[in-house]
């Protein structure tokens, strides 16, 4: 009787232990349970996770994939495709600065340079004190009153550098 050659096993890197804490895991599982029957649930689920936690942790991907019966690649693919979703924890406040043409025509390029210089960060970064994360945005629908930016859900138009400083000071002072 011929002996079988020893089975070749392709070593798979073991999954690293999840970095989610208990409340984060509970939040993600709660969102999945609430929305998993929704047709086309993935975007609503990712939005709800981000609303609850401020970002979508990398380790949420397997939980979401399992709940929606999707592959890790499908969930990761969607998460990384859309600019709005963040995989890193943001600062206390989110500042979306408009880079689009209508705002460019009234000084958005200069405002962007001023913002980066004064916050000491680039796009997608968070200030050292953890107060503000700066993100680019391509139109806030305030094109007759630019340059525009949005802090959390609050829209601001005709933003001068002075107004920018006031808004930053206010954001830094608030929890």
């Amino acid at each position: 009787m011929p002996t079988n050659p020893p089975r070749r096993v392709i070593a798979i890197k073991p999954e690293r232990p999840s970095t989610l804490d208990a409340p984060q895991r509970a939040a993600i599982e709660g969102v999945c349970a609430r929305l998993q029957a929704t047709p086309g649930a993935l975007l609503p689920v990712l939005h709800a996770v981000q609303d609850a936690l401020g970002f979508v942790p990398k380790d949420a991907v397997p939980l979401v994939a399992h709940a929606l019966n999707l592959s890790l690649a499908e969930v990761h693919g969607v998460l990384s495709f859309y600019h709005w979703f963040r995989s890193r924890e943001p600062g206390r406040h989110l500042m979306h600065l408009c880079r689009a043409e209508a705002c460019q025509s009234v000084g958005a390029v200069q405002l962007e340079a001023y913002a980066k210089r004064n916050l000491g960060i680039g796009f997608h970064d968070t200030t050292a004190d953890g107060a503000i994360t700066l993100e680019p945005v391509y139109c806030l629908g305030n094109c007759a009153l630019g340059p525009s930016l949005m802090i959390d859900d609050e829209l601001h138009g005709r933003v001068t550098t002075r107004r920018f400083d006031e808004l930053v000071a206010r954001a830094k002072a608030s929890p």
Partner: peptide, 8 residues
């Protein structure tokens, strides 16, 4: 209402 996620 369904929300997009910042993709033009």
């Amino acid at each position: 209402v369904r929300l997009g996620a910042g993709a033009y």
